[in-house]
């Protein structure tokens, strides 16, 4: 699907040969929808301004999560679609794949959402996302100069994140 012109982007991208070029971007949100971090490594096509883009991403995840919980065939107790759930209630998805990218998602009970967008052929990233959460704890949550709930400006976190993402994707 191409909505925004620019026909030079092929629908199924070739696998990058150089390692470390597989990750496109990463988002970190908190429960209030504040984008704590947006990190971009490889994103040739940009269609929205940063704020709209982040809001759209958050909205997508929020709706998708309530849809997946609603469609769950294994549990009887689920509210109506759109009815707020308690954190951790209901099932959730951990990734989806299109022909051009894969989005991996992790949410913690404290409401931190980690989103990593990579090449569609990347494997299971649940463990790597947990590792990134640990990086967040070490470099952000434990940083006394960081105010919880504000965008992350910790060089050390960014550096170690870049390094780690290069090693996995």
């Amino acid at each position: 699907m191409q909505f925004f012109g620019s026909s030079d982007i092929s629908p199924s991208p070739t696998v990058p040969t150089a390692s470390g070029n597989n990750a496109h971007m990463m988002y970190v949100f908190n429960r209030n929808g504040v984008c704590l971090l947006y990190r971009e490594w490889n994103r040739p096509l940009r269609t929205l301004d940063a704020q709209q883009d982040q809001k759209l991403m958050f909205g997508l995840l929020f709706s998708l999560k309530s849809l997946t919980a609603k469609m769950d065939p294994t549990t009887a107790e689920k509210g109506n679609l759109g009815v707020p759930q308690l954190p951790g209630q209901g099932c959730s998805f951990h990734s989806f794949r299109t022909n051009t990218y894969k989005l991996s998602f992790m949410e913690t009970p404290s409401g931190i959402k980690l989103i990593l967008v990579t090449h569609p052929r990347t494997g299971d990233l649940r463990e790597p996302l947990k590792y990134i959460y640990n990086l967040y704890v070490e470099y952000v949550a434990k940083n006394p100069l960081y105010t919880p709930g504000t965008p992350i400006r910790c060089e050390l976190f960014n550096t170690s994140l870049d390094q780690y993402v290069r090693s996995i994707a």
């Binding site: 951790g88 913690t108 009970p109 404290s110 931190i112 959460y133 640990n134 704890v137 949550a141 434990k142």
Partner: peptide, 18 residues
């Protein structure tokens, strides 16, 4: 507490508190 919770969750692997 509002910071420590993340360390707790990350290290204990608790994934839900309902």
């Amino acid at each position: 507490g509002i910071r420590l919770i993340d360390e707790f969750l990350a290290k204990s692997n608790v994934s839900r508190c309902v």
